[in-house]
Simulated scan of single mutants.
Amino acid sequence: MDLIDLVQWPAMLATVVAAWLIASLERRRRTIGFWCFMLSNVLWIIWGLHASAWALIVLQVCLAGLNIRGARKNAPGNA
């Protein structure tokens, strides 16, 4: 097992933590959840490049785009 294979575990943990935080009613926790999702996207892409998991990489890019879109739509002043 390569050390890069271990990246999938913090990626999974960041994804779970992000999902927990993003469901919060507190804006600060949702913001932290957003950044956790961005971190998980980067980690999954790093692991996906190593594993040649191209569909996973495309999925992470799409999910990052959707998260950015959601953050912009929910930004103050965009009611």
Rank of each mutant, 00 (worst) to 15 (best):
M1C: 08
D2Y: 01
D2G: 00
D2H: 03
D2Q: 04
D2V: 01
L3I: 03
L3C: 01
D5Q: 04
V7F: 07
V7I: 15
Q8D: 04
W9I: 00
W9C: 00
P10Q: 12
A11Y: 01
M12W: 06
M12Y: 11
L13I: 10
L13E: 01
L13C: 02
T15H: 14
V16C: 00
V17I: 11
V17P: 03
A18Y: 05
A18C: 07
A18M: 10
A18G: 15
A19W: 04
W20L: 06
L21Y: 05
I22V: 13
I22D: 10
I22N: 14
A23N: 04
A23V: 01
S24L: 00
L25C: 04
L25Y: 04
R29K: 15
R30W: 08
R30C: 10
I32V: 03
I32T: 02
G33E: 05
F34R: 13
C36K: 04
C36T: 04
F37I: 12
F37R: 08
L39A: 15
L39K: 02
L39F: 04
N41G: 09
V42N: 06
V42K: 08
V42P: 08
L43Q: 06
L43S: 13
L43H: 15
I45S: 11
I45D: 14
I45Y: 12
I45H: 07
G48T: 06
H50R: 05
H50Y: 07
A51G: 09
A51H: 12
S52V: 10
S52Y: 14
A53H: 07
A53L: 10
A53D: 05
W54D: 09
W54C: 04
A55E: 13
L56T: 15
I57D: 03
I57Q: 03
I57F: 02
Q60A: 11
Q60E: 13
V61H: 12
V61Y: 07
V61E: 05
V61M: 13
C62A: 13
C62H: 09
L63H: 09
L63F: 15
G65I: 00
G65Y: 00
L66K: 07
N67A: 14
N67W: 13
I68W: 07
R69P: 04
G70W: 08
A71C: 05
R72T: 06
R72M: 10
R72I: 12
K73C: 07
N74I: 10
A75R: 11
P76I: 06
G77T: 01
G77D: 02
A79K: 15
